[in-house]
Design a protein around this nucleic acid. Structure first.
Length: 422
RNA sequence: AGAGAGGUGGCCGAGUGGUCGAAGGCGCACGCCUGGAAAGUGUGUAUACACCAAAAGUGUAUCGAGGGUUCGAAUCCCUUCCUCUCUGCCA
């Protein structure tokens, strides 16, 4: 969520940059500015009224102590009247605040200058792409391979829960565990502190990272407890720092965590959801950084390189794209997507997304830092997948298939204890 | 889940209707003292929003959260969340 004060002082720039997303902010921004002006004038009146009530009450207190009780009556009456007035002003003030807030919630983050203009993924800018050389005779899709080697059972998951909840079996399960361990080790070696976090979060947390109210329909809800199953570990990890003022010298804060992710994925169908392409429950290792505003873009590059390093270790064909305005997530200012090639589907599968949210999340979450002069300001938050498992697994199955079986990437072998699935 | 106790500033802790944003202590910062340090000593020490060109200053709100009573609420009432102790259940 953007700050009203930022909109006030950067109005024209905001409108121009948001147009890169195809978002016309002109009316909304003007409306917010007008509403905020009214809000301020009411707030002044309201606070003046309260100040008068406070001073009358003080006087009454003094009169009581000096025994002049009879003099208090007219003051009490006046104060009661003011109280009524203040209630009206308060409700007016709340109305304005609510209206301003509802507009602010509709405005996406301001794209960074590097974000290419464009409406959809066609306009994403490919900044790196591996040369593809796979054996055209070995392009069985991962769902067939999974069945052939009996490592993932989609039907069984459907029986137990429903579609999109696969059961990983034997070497498949072990490979999953190996991937999680490898990712976590790789991340902690780079300085990310590992955390284990709750997989259910409350309303405040879901609101803080922007799942509420925007993406309410994407989350599973435990209504009896008023809790939400996390769609990503980003939610609990980032919320660790909600309402916290961090001292500047502690920045950056780097965390990594594994969690299952739960997504309803309403509206998805067809080949998009085939096999491991899109699941309701999947595993992911996440990295989160809380960063000084001055450092955040430098940090984003480092995270990008870090994630690229993981994929290289797995020795899978990949590409990196800069998301264009139209494809950019609501809360992000700049996002790089990492995609791994699926030879069987002949398409690129997104396995990671790394973003700088600047102050968009920290403003909602009230994550701030204090510099050595004592000034307080919002931090920048960044996060990325490092990595999401299912599509990595799909890519390993498809890219590493051979006549003898599936070759396990070298880096994973010390975790799996086997080098080939057959 | 049942019974009881309780939630106050970075931490501990006083405060049960009236100049209380809140005593006292610890911690922290700065100064004095010291050859240096410790001890001692003095001062300061929340956040948000608003007024102001800005600083200084001032106002408003915040004592788990949300409502209410009252001229006035940390203090009284209601709702709710959380913590602790005992009992129950249990990986």
């Amino acid at each position: 969520m953007l700050k009203t004060s930022y909109l006030l002082s950067n109005k024209d720039e905001v409108i121009i940059l948001l147009s890169k997303r195809g978002f016309d902010a002109n009316n909304m921004v003007n409306e917010i500015i007008a509403l905020d002006k009214k809000r301020k004038s009411i707030q002044v009146q309201y606070e003046e009224t309260l100040a008068e009530i406070n001073s009358i009450s003080k006087t009454i207190g003094e009169l009581f102590q000096s025994g002049e009780v009879s003099k208090t009556k007219p003051l009490k009456d006046k104060s009661s009247d003011l109280k009524k007035l203040s209630k009206d002003l308060a409700s007016g003030l709340e109305d304005y605040k609510a209206k301003i807030n509802s507009y602010l919630l509709q405005i996406p983050n301001i794209p960074h200058k590097d974000v290419p203009a464009g409406n959809d993924e066609i306009d994403n800018k490919i900044i790196y792409e591996s040369k593809l050389d796979f054996d055209k005779n070995l392009t069985e899709p991962h769902w067939d391979l999974a069945k052939k080697y009996d490592i993932i059972d989609f039907e069984l998951g459907t029986k137990i829960t429903g579609s999109g909840f696969p059961v990983y079996k034997g070497m498949g399960a072990k490979l999953q565990r190996a991937l999680i361990s490898f990712f976590l080790d790789y991340n902690t070696d780079a300085g990310y502190e590992e955390v284990q976090i709750p997989h259910l979060v409350n309303e405040n947390s879901a609101y803080g990272t922007g799942q509420l109210p925007d993406k309410e329909g994407q989350m599973y809800v435990v209504s009896s407890e008023n809790l939400y199953l996390i769609p990503t570990a980003e939610v609990p990890i980032t919320n660790i720092f909600r309402d916290v003022i961090i001292s500047e010298s502690d920045l950056p804060i780097m965390r990594t965590g594994y969690s299952p992710c739960f997504r309803r994925e309403a509206g998805s169908y067809g080949s998009d959801v085939r096999g491991l392409n899109r699941l309701h429950q999947f595993d992911k290792v996440e990295i989160v950084k809380i960063e000084h505003p001055k450092e955040s873009y430098h940090s984003l590059q480092k995270m990008k390189n870090h994630i690229e390093g993981i994929i290289k270790k797995l020795d899978l064909p990949y590409r990196i794209v800069t998301l264009c305005g139209g494809d950019l997530g609501f809360t992000s200012a700049l996002t790089y997507d990492f995609e791994i090639f699926s030879p069987a589907q002949e398409k690129w599968l997104e396995v990671s997304s790394v973003s700088n949210f600047e102050t968009f999340q920290s403003n909602r979450l009230k994550i701030r830092y204090r510099d050595n002069k004592g000034n307080i300001d919002l931090v920048h938050t960044l996060n990325g997948s490092a990595l999401a498992l299912p599509r990595v697994l799909a890519a390993i199955l498809e890219n590493n298939q051979s006549h003898d079986g599936i070759n396990v990437p070298k880096v994973l072998q010390k975790y799996t204890g086997f080098s080939i699935i057959k």
